[in-house]
Amino acid sequence: MLYVIPYPTIDPVLIAIGPFAIRWYALAYIVGILFGWWYAKRLVSNARLWGKDGSPITPVDLDDFVLWATVGIIVGGRIGYVLFYDPGAFLAAPLTIFEVWHGGMSFHGGFLGTTIAMALFCWKRGIPFLSLIDVIGPSVTVGLCLGRLANFINGELWGRPADVPWAMVFPNADGQPRHPSQLYEAALEGIVLFLVLRILTHKQLRLRQPGYVAAVFAMGYGLARIISEFFREPDIQIGYFSGGLTMGMLLSVPMVLAGLGLLIYVRRRDRV
């Protein structure tokens, strides 16, 4: 216990007025969506990033898409959590599915929900699907960072037992010093991935190659999540699969493969 640092206990409720409460977890989603909206509009408005033909997406398109994205994130994230992580508990008490303020969201479910929303929106508007993904991918990274910080504040999704100097004892765990894996994920999925994609969009001008940024986002998130899972305690109701794999790893492998496949397609297409 000599090397354990105190867990900085923070009230999960930011503001409470009577029965009305604003939680850090909900605020992370709100700020993440608003930032993503703003950043995506900055990307499509920067003519230098797109070349002589300009962006095929307008700021007005993104104004209209933000509602579609919000629905995709929340509905997909919640359904994904129910199906992937705890179907039994929700079958026993179905109404708890709607209690999203208590947490219980799946990134992979939110990713699928948002992808479906993007596909439908592009079909309706006649917008190139790959270009929209290229714009949305970098825009969600700050939201991913904030979401993991909210997990840390809630004292949930903690890491595996550890003897590193920065190990922490989480109040809702079992008293063992553990990796603050939420912070690892915030750094990898949020900060590092944002910087990588920023280089691609602003330095290498990869938005001119539809699908390139989206491919790197999918691979980057998948790899970041797989790495983080080595330090994160798996959900107690699921545990480990064969070979020490976790549900987060299994769900991330298809993202890496899909991103790699898309990258190969983009590179071959642009050689023609």
Results as ranks from 00 to 15, higher is better:
166 W>H: 07
217 F>I: 08
202 H>Y: 14
214 A>H: 01
69 A>N: 05
102 H>W: 10
240 Y>W: 02
109 G>E: 06
52 K>N: 10
194 F>V: 06
206 R>S: 12
130 L>C: 10
215 A>W: 07
189 E>P: 05
154 N>A: 12
71 V>Y: 07
168 M>K: 01
31 V>I: 15
76 G>H: 01
20 F>T: 05
189 E>Q: 09
249 M>Q: 15
153 I>V: 14
251 L>V: 11
152 F>S: 02
220 G>K: 13
185 E>S: 09
87 P>R: 10
80 G>R: 01
1 M>E: 11
240 Y>Q: 11
206 R>F: 12
205 L>Y: 14
27 L>S: 06
63 D>Y: 03
128 P>L: 13
181 S>D: 01
41 K>M: 15
259 G>V: 04
64 D>T: 05
186 A>F: 06
224 A>E: 04
195 L>A: 13
101 W>G: 10
21 A>K: 04
74 I>R: 02
202 H>K: 14
8 P>C: 07
217 F>Y: 12
15 I>V: 15
229 E>S: 05
149 L>N: 07
43 L>P: 06
27 L>D: 05
169 V>S: 05
117 A>L: 00
180 P>G: 05
187 A>Y: 03
76 G>F: 03
86 D>A: 15
191 I>F: 08
238 I>Q: 15
36 G>Q: 13
131 S>H: 13
196 V>A: 09
117 A>M: 00
128 P>E: 12
134 D>T: 05
79 I>L: 15
75 V>K: 08
244 G>Q: 10
